[in-house]
């Protein structure tokens, strides 16, 4: 009996926090800025710290994942004598699955955690209260540019990840393993479709972007204003963000490619 009560309480708490997070994000993005120029400046600043600074890790990991996929794929495909299908393997697995998911996981660790810590520290040092006291909405001023920047950056990073992965894979399979260049590209072009593969991957990345950034800014805003609280909130961002990405990925994959 006690367990059932505890379960019920847990469900209610969970629903409450989901509702609060929903209201929170609605309030931050649907309040029009009063000064457009200033808002765009803030957005550019966030695009820089969320997107540009994540570029190196995304390009490096994309290239290496492409290279490893080529090596692994080649060694198996060579047994069937169809080495040139490595291009197809590489492009499809990157575009459909790996680049949105891995980019989102990297993003949660790199940009998400720093968003949470930054907002949490602003809360702890009373900067958020300070905005409020000056009659400036901290949701609009602090949260909205960060959220929007995250939603813009992750799909772009995912595209860059795919391109880097394919180039890295080409380097290994064509340049090193000796797959024929033309066969590599034509097997890829025959099996990859722009709408089902490239666009679906992009849609996945957008969904992950909303989930991860939302979790990151909400955890920062709601964190306990102590150093321990910031630490916990940052951990929660990475853990919840990664789990959300993986769970969402299953749902989206089932919806997009499930009827094959």
């Amino acid at each position: 009996m006690k367990a059932i009560v505890a379960l019920g309480a847990w469900v209610f708490n969970w629903l409450e926090s989901v509702g609060r997070a929903g209201i929170f994000i609605m309030q931050s993005i649907f309040r029009m800025p009063t000064r457009w120029g200033e808002s765009i400046n803030l957005l550019v600043k966030q695009l820089y710290s969320v997107g540009v600074l994540s570029l190196v890790i995304v390009i490096v990991s994309g290239t290496f994942i492409g290279m490893v996929l080529s090596l692994q794929g080649y060694s198996i495909l060579a047994k069937f004598g169809s080495e040139e299908a490595v291009g197809q393997l590489l492009a499809l697995s990157l575009l459909r699955e790996l680049s949105p998911v891995v980019t989102a996981l990297l993003f949660a660790g790199r940009a998400g955690s720093s968003l949470t810590a930054e907002i949490g520290l602003m809360k702890t040092t009373e900067q958020l209260s300070s905005y409020e006291m000056m009659g400036v909405d901290p949701l609009r001023r602090v949260i909205a540019p960060r959220f929007i920047a995250g939603v813009i950056c992750l799909p772009l990073l995912s595209l860059i990840f795919s391109a880097a992965g394919i180039l890295g894979g080409q380097l290994v399979s064509v340049g090193w393993l000796g797959v024929h260049d033309g066969a590599f590209w034509s097997s890829m072009q025959q099996s990859v479709y722009f709408d089902t593969d490239v666009l679906n991957g992009l849609i996945k990345a957008m969904c992950f972007a909303v989930a991860v950034t939302w979790i990151a800014v909400y955890q920062g805003y709601e964190c306990a204003p102590t150093s321990e609280g910031i630490g916990k909130a940052t951990t929660r961002t990475v853990v919840l963000g990664s789990l959300a990405v993986l769970a969402l990925d299953f749902v989206l994959t089932a919806a997009m490619f499930g009827d094959f």
Partner: peptide, 16 residues
Amino acid sequence: LGIVALVYLAVQVSGL
């Protein structure tokens, strides 16, 4: 860079 990546994926990879 992001847009270039998209065009690259569209033209070179999916042969659009």
